[in-house]
Nucleic acid binder design. Structure first.
Lengths: 188, 188, 188, 188
DNA sequence: CATGAATGAGCTTTCATTCAT
DNA sequence: CATGAATGAAAGCTCATTCAT
């Protein structure tokens, strides 16, 4: 099997299990089942694996969205499905996202983030454009700007619920309902 | 005078200047003008200074808000002033917030974050409660839940602008306008 | 209460509990309930408490012997009582003796050991002298030399049993019997 | 060549020269001609080299015994040769034994001591068994128990002479004679 | 390409010792 | 005499990185 892929998977495993700073190269190679020196044939440092991890994370998000959102539904329904998908993937992969947020704030890679995240931005952009053309949302929505606002809104709410707090399912459902009403109202 | 305070200030200075991971204890004590061993009388590691830094950051946020928001204005005006205040403090202290977001996602301290942030949550909660009682916003808003949604929304937008991208002032203003319309519409 | 005495007792407590090398001055002062600096008013280092500990140990040995050995008995009986006393005190204070043996091999204090141990040597010396004069042992015994041989013999046997091995009570009793026969035969 | 062996030899050298506590890892690696980190590939601490040193010491004892004792001699002669061998090796390697006695009393390794010493115990055991079968010693000697008694007796006498005191050669010879008579009488 | 033993710079951490109060 | 916060030298130990195989 591809050693680079092995390294990426082992790194995700180690980062999410014990945190980025507590992960040594020796942990990664042990988990990957390769020799110490082999790591350096593919990556110059553990931090340089981060963009690959980010790519993986966005792929996971997009997979979840594609699986959950029915493009033929009405806008309101699609928005509900989108929020549910983000909540679901945030819960499922919360350690992965924690790693990413910590890694992102870490200087260098900030710029790459933009392009890695673009599939998600574009998907929401298209969603808004179509809804605007179908008069399903207010006409003064700028799709580019609002896509970022929306994604930030949904993700920050999901993070609060799954990363920082550990609320009951009822509270999560209530927060979900509050958010859905908030978004629908915002775009009406 | 107070050595603990000196350590906190020196740590903020070093963390924001060179990043958490590139900051050595020796950098901190040098900046604080104390002996190496003295650091360990107050903190067991550089990471354990993080909650103190978070407290400081929230204090700065609240100072900015108190200075910027006129409580006697109409709700819409107060909301505009609030968003402006968060944008301003995020721009001014972007390195500080970058440090915080990186540090927070780092395991242990997640729970403390909740209580450290509570002054901000409470302030927005009161704002919404009052607006609701004055019929300035829709009546089905749950103030506790929406305060979190709102804060996440405003902060995530500010972060995108000031931490990850480096857009022009026009773009920032346009994003601000888009956000204000989004929020007002959401609460109407 | 006398602070010096407090320090000695606390040091014995700490040394026997966690070992000499793992004991910090701060542990001792904490256990003694005094201030850090106070220690240095009485001792220049933790090692310099060792002679005091040795004195204490020999006092304990002599107390046990005086309590156990009836000077009016026959020599053979007294020897049995002596061996029993050494076994008993070795078992009771095995951690203390472990500390002492470790500390003794440590250079500087070797010379003091001689004088600290002299009460024990002298006691056995007198025992042998008296037994010789009463024809209870062979006449070519040199009391000075044999006192050292005897003490080394009894103590090394006790150490093996209580410090290094952890044998059953039957085995201890058997070893005691073997030793008694050995000694009696040696001196006959 | 073999780095582990180099470390063991360098550690013995340093321990016997400057004492265990005054020996730094950096002293050992300097003496061994290896890098600091290499030490930790083989041992977790300087104390963990102790069992290897003990093994070496017992090997030295056994070499001396094999070289000095003629197995075809009468028991009394062999015993004299044995005592002389132990005296000789104790004198020759007194620093090594001082290190060992200090290190042994140090907790953890006590149990290993038993098995490390077993070649010596077994050798004396065989000696006694043979002597008993040839009626050279009293018949109620238990070889296993008396081997421990004998070894403790000889070693403790040698230690007193060479480690703790520094007596004249005449005194040493006199103590030797006293000991030989003591042992012969004990086993008769 | 792959290995993994060896490296050693560099950091953390400890803790005996001091000294102003 | 007694204190205990502050000190900073000194050591331990880690771990990214290399390179001969």
């Amino acid at each position: 099997m591809d050693k680079k892929q092995k390294i990426i998977e082992a790194t995700i495993d180690q980062f999410t299990t014990k945190g980025v700073e507590n992960t040594k190269i020796s942990d990664i190679v042990k988990a990957a089942g390769i020799a110490q020196g082999t790591f350096y044939l593919y990556f110059p440092s553990k931090f340089s694996v981060m963009p690959e991890i980010a790519k993986y994370a966005v792929e996971e998000i997009m997979k979840e969205i594609h699986a959950s959102v029915n493009l033929h539904d009405a806008f309101d329904n699609k928005m509900e499905q989108l929020v549910k998908a983000v909540f679901r993937i945030t819960e499922e992969k919360k350690e992965l996202f924690a790693v990413l947020y910590a890694g992102l704030a870490q200087s260098e890679h900030l710029k790459q983030w933009e392009s890695i995240y673009s599939p998600f931005y574009n998907w929401v952009y298209d969603l808004l454009e179509e809804a605007a053309s179908k008069m399903e949302i207010r006409q003064n929505v700028n799709s580019a700007r609002t896509s970022r606002i929306l994604i930030g809104l949904i993700e920050s709410t999901a993070e609060q619920l799954y990363l920082y707090d550990s609320p009951s399912q009822e509270e999560i459902d209530a927060q979900y309902d509050e958010l859905i009403v908030f978004i629908k109202s915002a775009l009406k």
